[in-house]
């Protein structure tokens, strides 16, 4: 199928869910407020119950431990549940069921747990400490999970398809600020984006920005602003676990200058691992210290001036690139 359609990021998520539910009767969606006409806090599942019925579009009580644990049991029995946690911030209420049970199961007794958690993450939308978080580092640090974070509508659909078809628990961090603000071409039908393969979002010769999620848009903005004097290569990781180390290292060796950026707080974030890995693996190729851009080590604040002070954007990435290039 070669045709593409233009749609928003959240429409691409819905298209991905619908594609998989039509293709595979074992796929179901579950979570709080996702059913009926309401269709979820962000309307990602709107219209699905009308097409697939309440058996496959399951509203749950406010019990993350129970319904994530139940999804694990369903997965063990061969179903492929897709769980919506409403906000990524709330994923902590189901923590044990994810990192202790689901993540360890295949290693311990060789049983596959094929579920996906859709975690609406990220801020910049004035939603305060509990509706703005980026908790991906917790899960990247957990053996047995896979973690993805799409930055485009095409990958929002493609990575969701891949995540649903994967036989492991996959946490899919979707970026709330992209939901309706980003439109793009999305292939029709079932074109999955392979988990573990990064994308060069923009080619450049002088410096590499490694990032994911909404920060890809910010990095491309920064790169556009610096062109043509500085050639910025932007790597959209797409998958945080496993990381595409080949693409990361190839770009680092090519440009010799690396900036790692994410909206999550910088301290012990995913970027720290990438920076350390590049520093060790591509040391001889580097012409400047690796620079990290990330949120501050504070709860995500509510008020616009405070949140803007917390959260990195294109300006911070631009400053980091300039510093790295000038070194």
């Amino acid at each position: 199928m070669d045709s593409t359609r233009t749609m928003t990021y959240i429409e691409a998520i819905r298209d991905g869910l619908r594609t998989e539910m039509r293709r595979d009767p074992d796929v179901l969606v579950m979570g709080e407020d996702i059913g009926g006409e309401f269709g979820g806090a962000f309307k990602a599942t709107k219209g699905l119950e009308a097409e697939f019925g309440p058996r496959r579009v399951m509203n749950t009580p406010m019990t993350e431990l129970a319904f994530i644990g139940a999804a694990t049991g369903m997965g063990l029995m061969g179903l492929r549940p897709v769980i919506e946690v409403q906000f990524a911030d709330f994923i902590s209420t189901g923590f044990d069921s994810i990192v202790q049970y689901a993540a360890t199961t295949h290693y311990r007794w060789q049983a596959a747990v094929p579920w996906v958690i859709r975690a609406p993450a990220d801020g910049g939308i004035r939603s305060g400490p509990f509706h703005s978080q980026n908790p991906e580092a917790w899960f990247v640090h957990t053996p047995g999970l896979k973690v993805v974070a799409p930055a485009t509508p095409a990958d929002a659909k493609g990575l969701l398809l891949a995540a649903i078809r994967d036989n492991n628990p996959v946490i899919y961090f979707e970026s709330k600020p992209l939901y309706r603000s980003l439109r793009g071409e999305v292939p029709a039908g079932d074109r999955a984006t392979p988990i573990g393969r990064a994308r060069i979002a923009r080619e450049g010769q002088h410096v590499t920005v490694i990032t994911y999620g909404e920060m890809v848009r910010q990095a491309v903005l920064a790169a556009d602003g610096l062109a043509p004097e500085v050639g910025v290569e932007v790597i959209d990781l797409r998958s945080l676990k496993p990381l595409d180390r080949d693409t990361i290292m190839a770009s680092a060796r090519k440009t010799g200058r690396v900036v790692v950026a994410h909206a999550a707080n910088r301290l012990a974030g995913v970027g720290a691992e990438i920076a350390a890995d590049v520093g060790q693996t591509a040391f001889e190729y580097l012409d400047a210290p690796i620079c990290r851009v990330g949120g501050l080590d504070v709860p995500v604040p509510f008020s616009p001036p405070l949140e803007d002070a917390y959260r990195p954007g294109a300006d911070d990435i631009t400053a980091a690139i300039r510093e790295t290039v000038a070194y």
């Binding site: 049991g73 063990l76 179903l79 202790q100």
Partner: peptide
């Protein structure tokens, strides 16, 4: 047989999920 973890009773919702898959 479904295996358990030390975090009791985190296996309870897993068994429940098996039951829900039978209904499904």
């Amino acid at each position: 047989l479904i295996g358990f973890i030390s975090h009791l009773p985190q296996t309870m919702p897993v068994a429940l999920g098996a039951a829900m898959s039978f209904s499904y």
